[in-house]
Design a protein around this nucleic acid. Structure first.
Lengths: 249, 249
DNA sequence: ATAAAGCCTGACGTAACGTCAGAGTCAAGG
DNA sequence: CCTTGACTCTGACGTTACGTCAGGCTTTAT
């Protein structure tokens, strides 16, 4: 029997306003587990978990209405949802990085040439605009029943130590790659790195194999800089190097 | 004399809705440079630049009213503002990364122990909530008149090739550091890496020296994973290694 | 010159809260 | 046990940043 919390406590703990919690209660998104005799809202621990889901999904751009529908679906799986969230947060982070470089390019060009590059201005606006309009569509795709089920299934087929081992090896490999960006792509050392990368990719994908659409989606995300695990994230330059190696046969 | 655009063009170019542009016109945030004889809004290129500012600042959480005030300030400097924006976007990206790992920790724990860790649930919620409530305050700090002036001054004192050189050296150094995480922190090799890192930090900070508050703020951001340039970003593990080296004297 | 496509201006609607106001509830200390 | 200060409740109304028609001009392409 876990402890219970009053609105104010929940509010300070999760840094949302009391009024927001009232609001979520009224629209039926998060009703407290119980009420005191005097009518106070008493939240339980599972309520906190649900609130976490709500807050993260809201942060990712879902309207509250959709969140309610999602959380109410019979096939909703908390663990799968958290996985999707982590994935989406990483994607969003990479997106911000892209916007940031777009803005950076804009200043740089201005400082170099003394004039504004209107193409870069537009590019920067587009980047920020895209991340606001795309987001709903992108997220909806993640939360289709099939995707959820698939994400839920992955963890069960791949043991955690295999995941950890894969992440460690990626980190090591990337460190070596980064120390050798200037290497001749046709050299034996470079080819060896390329081979290791390919083998690791295969191992990484193993758990997802039964689900072709997922494999594809994950491949795309890799190149965009979004990842499942907490590993050192590969960057565009790493892929560029590996691509050069592959091109050099 | 640059070309001019109609609402629809601006809208598709920057991926905002026509209605949004109408709205910005009505509240006086972005009035088109001219009107056609028939009353069509005709936007000029400088309008696009202003729109970029608006969109980025909005993305960063500023209310439109504050944006209007900001852009109207007599000491407003476009280049400085863009620098601040890039910085802020990076910070936001790093924040997302933190939230993502918080969510990741939560799932992981659940899979390991079979039960939910309420502390981690709260932590995850807090992370999300913080990034929504903090944002205004944090950004306001960036946009004080002094900070703006200082950011504007930086680029003028440090030549671009010095910046490029510094970024390249950081990238090289980090690659080596990453290849040696397991090295004895007291070893000569490790100490050499530590020395190089300190020297580079000093060079990095040179341009900011006249402004102590900026130096401090930048130092803090480094550890949080936010950066000025487009370089390979150091990660927590890198700092951990360098800290170990320093601790080993 | 005649559509098709695009643009205009209200008027009204919506989401997700924020802001009081007035009244009731709780838990600790005297 | 009772008081008191901190907390909570429920409307009612306000706010921000647009979205959604509706009815009617403007442009541009053919």
């Amino acid at each position: 029997m876990g402890r219970s919390y009053r609105v104010g406590e929940v509010a300070t703990l999760t840094r949302v306003s009391v009024r927001t919690l009232h609001h979520y209660d009224r629209i039926g998104l998060l009703r407290p587990a119980a009420h005191s005799s005097g009518g106070y809202r008493m939240y339980g621990e599972s309520d906190l978990l649900r609130l976490q889901q709500i807050l993260t999904l809201r942060y990712l751009g879902f309207p509250l209405k959709r969140i309610g529908e999602l959380l109410g679906r019979p096939d909703f799986d908390l663990v799968a949802s958290l996985r999707v969230q982590r994935q989406a947060l990483r994607e969003r982070s990479a997106e911000l990085e892209r916007i940031s470089t777009a803005v950076g390019d804009l200043v740089e060009r201005r400082l170099e040439t003394g004039a504004w590059s209107w193409e870069l201005v537009i590019e920067a606006s587009q980047a920020v605009g895209a991340s606001l309009t795309q987001r709903e569509e992108t997220m909806e795709a993640h939360y289709t029943p099939e995707q959820m089920k698939q994400f839920a299934a992955v963890g069960e087929t791949t043991p955690p130590e295999e995941i950890a081992s894969i992440e460690r090896e990626w980190t090591e490999l990337l460190a070596e790659v980064r120390a050798n960006y200037d290497l001749d792509p046709a050299s034996a050392t470079a080819r060896a790195l390329g081979d290791r990368a390919e083998a690791l990719t295969a191992r990484t994908m193993r758990g997802y194999e039964p689900y072709p659409e997922l494999t594809e989606a994950i491949g795309a995300n890799y190149e965009k800089g979004a990842f499942e695990g907490n590993m050192l994230a590969p960057q565009a330059a790493d892929f560029a190097f590996l691509a050069r190696v592959k091109a050099a046969r």
